[in-house]
Design a protein around this nucleic acid. Structure first.
Lengths: 229, 229
DNA sequence: CGACTACTGCCATAATTTGGCAGTATAGGT
DNA sequence: ACCTATACTGCCAAATTATGGCAGTAGTCG
């Protein structure tokens, strides 16, 4: 059995077993070594498969691995398509790909007649002003937000004055022309907004910031207007 | 990209393209040679994937093939949420409700941890300029587009000159401040764009227009720039 | 504590994949 | 009838890569 198809087989094997299966059993069933099995499990997880592995127990395919059939009204489909088109047009490119992928996955579980509505949707997003750069950093920033990690950035303010600071990013806002990171700034000890196209360098620190993202967001909404950095 | 995951990627790429894709395009997207792509397609087919390949045309994934992983990634969920937020903010109110409902339905089938991502998503849509009115007519217009019905409208052009005409609406564009119906105008016998806030009255006629919506849209894209009504 | 199991790093070896080329077949357009 | 675009196959040398074994860590269960 070649490596290629083995992953697909592994999924099927996991599906068959409702109860935890040990890695050793899986390895035997697939005819590979235990070491290789661990690698395969890792590969699947990296591709979005939701597999639980517990020491002393074994592996189980978590429920929710597959999308059940979904039903939407025509209007809801149009809303999803329009939203995804906007993201594809105005978000950064990674997010745009994600939007298209999400739509494709939804299409895969839609009844045939609704699937046609997806293509047929004639709601268009008007052409936007070109978006200021900063595309490369955005995935890193989003990742930092998701994992509540500190970011160290080199930043140019509106007068082109350079500063270097550590921030706690917790939100990302998409305006018509610019994108802005909302974060707590350790340098200024307050909430600040950073235009991503003025971030000239950034590094994700392996340090989690000490407060919950949601708490920061909530407090930020209360504070109101924020001075520029 | 290693061979292993590439097959899973290939499935997702195929899912994304609903129309035939050439092998060359797929190979480019995956970053492998054409020769290798043919081998990969073969490997997938050997594992039960139903992929149609026609000489001179390209490949299409036949629907009904639910090979995993078919679950949203965090990024895809963020994209869906961001898109829906934009629709809720900039679309008309009916569409906004539809966007929220669609999201709720998606949330209902998500495993618990992913559902949290949905609520916690911290991608924000910047506040937009207030959108010119015309909210009340939009659902009617969308309905007419979906069912390919003629519309009779009373319209004010940019010099406030009133006209009354019958149009064949087939698309709706959302710009930053205005919304525009794209239609064939029986009065002018050509494609026109109508700002919805300048439509002062409209009535859906019980008559289907004689051409397919998709055909109109295709031709319209070819024509290029359209004069205002 | 001990048994069992998930997981990771390292490394030499072996296997597999890869890409290029040359050639065939089929569909659609002119 | 011809041309282009595409799907598809065989072959082969080169090299990427997967593999398995071992050693070690960490978590769960009893």
């Amino acid at each position: 059995m070649s490596h290629a198809g083995r992953l697909l087989d592994l999924i099927q094997v996991l599906r068959r077993h409702r109860h935890p299966v040990t890695g050793r059993a899986l390895a035997a069933e697939l005819g590979v070594s235990l070491r290789t099995l661990y690698r395969d499990i890792g590969a699947l997880q990296a591709h979005g498969a939701r597999i639980d592995g517990e020491p002393g127990i074994g592996y189980v395919l978590r429920p929710g691995f597959m999308l059940p059939p979904l039903m939407f009204s025509e209007e809801e489909i149009e809303a999803l398509v329009l939203g995804s088109r906007w993201v594809a047009d105005r978000g950064d490119s990674r997010l745009g790909v994600a939007a298209r992928n999400a739509l494709a996955k939804i299409a895969a579980v839609l009844p045939a007649d609704l699937r046609d509505d997806l293509d047929a949707s004639t709601l268009l997003v008007g052409p936007g002003q070109p978006i200021a750069a900063g595309d490369a950093e955005l995935p890193t920033i989003r990742q930092a937000i998701r994992t509540e990690r500190k970011l160290e950035i080199a930043y140019l303010d509106r007068y082109a004055v350079a500063t270097r600071r550590v921030i706690w990013p917790f939100a990302l806002a998409f305006f018509d022309r610019v994108r802005v990171v909302v974060a707590w700034c350790e340098l200024r000890q307050s909430f600040r907004h950073f235009r991503t196209d003025r971030v000239v360098a950034l590094a994700a620190l392996p340090v989690r910031y000490p407060r919950r993202r949601q708490a920061l967001a909530k407090e930020w909404r209360k504070v109101g207007d924020i001075p520029d950095p």
